[in-house]
Design a protein around this nucleic acid. Structure first.
Lengths: 231, 231
DNA sequence: AACACTTCAGGACATATGTCCTTTCCAAGA
DNA sequence: TCTTGGAAAGGACATATGTCCTGAAGTGTT
């Protein structure tokens, strides 16, 4: 983590995401911009939490590790997103580990200042409400999805969702997905996911070349996934 | 659903749960008390939502039905709880079906009035934030729990959690649990749950007599469930 | 009591998924 | 160039879970 002393940058992010109003005059001076390198932890499960972060650039993953050491990825997130909100409101330790997937920039504020100056600031409260309800809704969906459908369907949905987002950038159909990550996200074992991938290849839905996955039949995947997409 | 015109009653509930402040003077006159009979629907997945309800008495269950008709119970809830909060904030249709498990009383307000008079009322916003973050936290837990552990463990946890709450009342250890409900809650099939129940009986953890389940070895269950309890 | 009807318990089998291992391959570093 | 470590792919097997079906037992109705 590196702190960047560039208040202009902070302001410009706030303005870009139209959230200037959520921090009032008293809080503004206590905002800082932080950079995290790829693979760096933004926060770790179980630790005490001190900062509310607003993700403004890059991509992060949120996951939990069970007592037995198994990992379950709860979500990948891109701006605009907030980390530490639940912990702030509930005043509890960090629930999930958050790790930078790419290089990441976040605006951070200490709870301290939020408690002091933000408790009754309606725009902030509304903003948090909005973000958290979104998260909740999304989680509700993925939870029922995970419990109701087999790995095959979940993976098809995952592929669609990921390829959609990624392909914004460059490589239209070629995806560099980490199969391990995918397995943890879907809540299955690496082995089994591999099996399903093999099956998809046989069926001509996808193709794989050394670590990459090429979506060949988007419609076929969609048919498999049904309407259910990790939104 | 039956509307009860008893403003005193409403006031007394608000006071009992120490939430008088969340509704301001303008909103108060628009609060009503509603009664739902056992088995009655409070709201149904996909419908347009109009009311924010505060559960003040009784027990409800929240569940979702997949396109294929499978049911997944997301939670059982007792006061103090709010229904329709996510929908209110996000302005979307009802996400999950909510059904009265016992006879139930709820305080209801139309979104209309909340939008008009409550948008900037910090105590209301704080209250919603608090409730929703709790829900979120709980859901996060149960989601990872469901994905990370086998039915055996989940059911043990379920039994502990349910027997704990129920036994507050009368029958110390005797539980009338609906096995179907339990199966849907855990996200498994009736058949399989039955199998696990049989196994638990063999191991002397529980005993069953015609539809009831008797917890015999709470410690054994706890050992199986580990620390993980549906909170 | 006799009947139809539902719920409950469980058998038999198929499928989904997990665990453990082995082999291959490729890339980073000595 | 030669290791060496780790990712990738998949074989073999065990286990967890789902589906379909059947028979027993309870419940209400006539």
């Amino acid at each position: 983590m590196r702190e960047i002393n560039d208040f202009k940058q902070v302001k410009s992010y706030l303005s870009a995401y139209q959230i200037e109003s959520i921090f009032n005059e008293q809080i503004l001076p206590h905002l800082s911009l932080y950079t995290f390198e790829q693979g760096e932890f933004i926060c770790s499960q179980g630790q005490a939490s001190q900062y509310l972060y607003v993700l403004v650039k890059g991509k992060i993953k949120v996951y939990t590790t069970s007592a037995e050491g198994r990992t379950l990825i709860l979500s990948f997130k891109t701006p605009l997103e907030v980390i530490g909100d639940i912990e702030y409101v509930q005043d509890i330790n960090i629930i999930n580990t958050v790790e930078a997937v790419s290089s990441v920039q976040m605006i951070g504020v200490q709870y301290h200042w939020l408690r002091k100056y933000g408790r009754d600031h309606a725009p902030l409260l509304q903003f948090l409400l909005d973000i958290i309800t979104q998260k909740f809704h999304l989680k509700t969906n993925s939870m029922s999805f995970n419990l109701l459908y087999p790995v095959e369907v979940r993976f098809a949905s995952y592929l669609l969702s990921v390829s959609f987002n990624e392909s914004d950038s460059l490589n239209k159909e070629q995806l560099r997905i980490s199969i391990k990550d995918a397995a943890n996200f879907i809540g299955t074992s690496y082995r089994h996911l591999n099996r399903v991938i093999g099956q998809f290849c046989t069926e001509g839905l996808i193709e794989r070349n050394k670590g990459f996955i090429l979506v060949k039949d988007r419609e076929g995947l969609r048919a498999l996934a049904g309407d259910n997409i990790y939104e």
